[in-house]
Design a protein around this nucleic acid. Structure first.
Lengths: 160, 160
DNA sequence: TTCTAAATTGGAATCCTTCTAAAAAGTGTG
DNA sequence: CACACTTTTTAGAAGGATTCCAATTTAGAA
């Protein structure tokens, strides 16, 4: 549950001797309880009432910290700006190339990939990230595409 | 071979009724023959002698076009700026978290992922991208990390 | 060759992100 | 509890990547 993940993540900060400030707790709580893949701006605005003096720089700093710790991951969806996602459980993302929507898919089973990559590249592998692209159900309807029509179209022109 | 991939990619432009301009041909040729995952700036400077009046905007426009067509893919390596890679053969990338180096790994075998993601998300899936992170062999030496030492370190503090 | 839509150019403008210096707030010690 | 020290936050400036724009040029078709 959410509370567990929060305390676990806060413990992670303590383990690394990183100060647990109100800003960090509140940003972390936001991320644990919202799975909308927020941008920096979204987080900043959402927390305006809780932390009226919160600085954008702090949001940036905090997110970078969380990403370095592996608590949070970064994603791009074609919009300007980076989006963030609490990474409590391994999952990957499917991104809509039309509207930018990001959907979680919990079905990793990519465990072998890291070992294989390490073997082939000589890298000391620490993590991986997988992104799948396509059209979300809503956009399929909006654009009136059927699976076959879409496949035909993709073969002839590019998406604007 | 490279020449084949170039003509094939140019044919792709024609099929989509996209004009084959000198700028596009030259940028495409650069990408087909260089596998250094160049940034926009790298491409711009490399082509300065061939196309003295080339505009940065054209490089941006052209790369976006190629990405939309699926000829080229975008990657980030932690540096500022986006890097590009001709996608003649399916492969994925291993990125060094210390120096930003990007290494190709040709061993997809992720074919099932798209179908699975489509099934679980309802998206009409068109492509996917996989990135693996770690420390490249050079940085392992430079930093004097052994596999076990590194794993221990990763458990205790974050990378700066 | 001529015509038209598409592409390119170069510079301004925009927007995301980082930097900086000063103030504020944790943490440990005596 | 006060002190000293370090980390963190803040606000705004600065930086840098990318996009936008109007004017010019060009590719490709008729």
């Amino acid at each position: 549950m959410a509370a567990d993940m929060l305390t676990q993540a806060i413990q992670e900060l303590k383990d690394h001797k990183i100060r647990v400030t109100p800003q960090r707790q509140i940003i972390l709580t936001y991320l644990v309880t919202h799975h909308n893949h927020p941008s920096v701006e979204t987080i900043y605005q959402a927390l305006d009432t809780q932390l009226p003096n919160l600085s954008l720089a702090t949001v940036y700093n905090t997110l970078k910290l969380f990403v370095d710790l592996g608590i949070v991951i970064e994603l791009q969806n074609g919009d300007a700006g980076t989006h963030y996602d609490f990474f409590g459980r391994p999952h990957y993302h499917v991104v809509c190339e039309n509207c930018g929507k990001i959907t979680d898919v919990f079905e990793p089973d990519l465990s072998g990939v890291e070992a294989k990559a390490a073997e082939l590249s000589g890298y000391l592998v620490t993590s991986h990230n997988m992104e799948v692209y396509g059209l979300c159900p809503d956009c399929q309807k909006k654009l009136g595409v059927t699976r076959t029509a879409e496949l035909r179209r993709l073969n002839l022109s590019h998406v604007d």
